[in-house]
Amino acid sequence: MPASSTASMPERALSALVVIPARMASSRLPDKPLAEIAGEPMIVHVWRQASIAAIGPVVVAADDARIVAAVHAAGGQAVLTRSDHESGSDRVYEAALKTDPDGRHPVILNLQGDVPLIDPDAIRAAFAPLIDPKVDIGTIMTEIRNDEDRNDPGFVKAVTTPVEGPISGRHRALYFTRATAPAGDGPLYQHIGVYAYRRAALERFVSLPPSALEKREKLEQLRALEDGMRIDVTLVASTPMDVNTPEDLARVRKVIEAGKVNV
Rank of each mutant, 00 (worst) to 15 (best):
A183V: 15
A201Y: 01
V163R: 00
D90F: 09
A122H: 04
S89D: 03
K134G: 09
E94F: 01
E143P: 08
A173I: 07
P120S: 03
G186I: 08
E214Q: 13
F205E: 03
D136P: 10
G186W: 13
S207W: 03
A158V: 00
A200G: 14
R170K: 15
L174C: 14
G154T: 14
A173V: 15
G186Q: 14
A158N: 02
K157P: 08
G103S: 10
V156Q: 01
S168Q: 15
D119C: 11
I140W: 00
A200Q: 15
I137L: 14
T177Y: 08
F127P: 07
N146C: 10
P209H: 06
P116Y: 05
D119R: 05
L213Y: 01
A183Q: 13
H105T: 04
L130P: 05
A200Y: 07
R145I: 13
L213F: 01
R198P: 02
S168Y: 04
P129Y: 07
T139Q: 00
V159H: 04
R199T: 10
A173N: 04
E217N: 09
E214N: 10
E143H: 10
E214L: 01
H105I: 04
F205C: 09
R199E: 09
P106I: 08
A181D: 10
A128S: 14
G193T: 10
Q190S: 14
G103D: 09
V115R: 11
E143F: 03
D136V: 04
A122S: 15
A158F: 01
L97N: 09
R170I: 07
Q112T: 06
H171Q: 00
E217H: 13
A181Q: 15
E86K: 12
D136G: 11
N110K: 12
G193I: 05
D147N: 14
D90T: 13
A158R: 00
P153M: 10
H105C: 08
F127A: 03
Y195M: 10
A125M: 02
A158D: 00
I137F: 10
S168L: 11
A201H: 00
T180M: 15
T161G: 00
F176N: 02
Y93Q: 07
D100K: 11
L188D: 04
V156L: 11
P162H: 11
T177W: 12
A201F: 06
E86Q: 11
Y195I: 06
D149T: 12
L97R: 13
A183I: 09
H105S: 09
I123G: 06
E143C: 03
N146M: 08
P209S: 13
S168K: 13
G138I: 02
L202W: 00
V194S: 11
F205G: 01
I140C: 01
P101S: 11
I192W: 11
R150P: 02
P116F: 06
T139F: 06
I108E: 05
F176W: 11
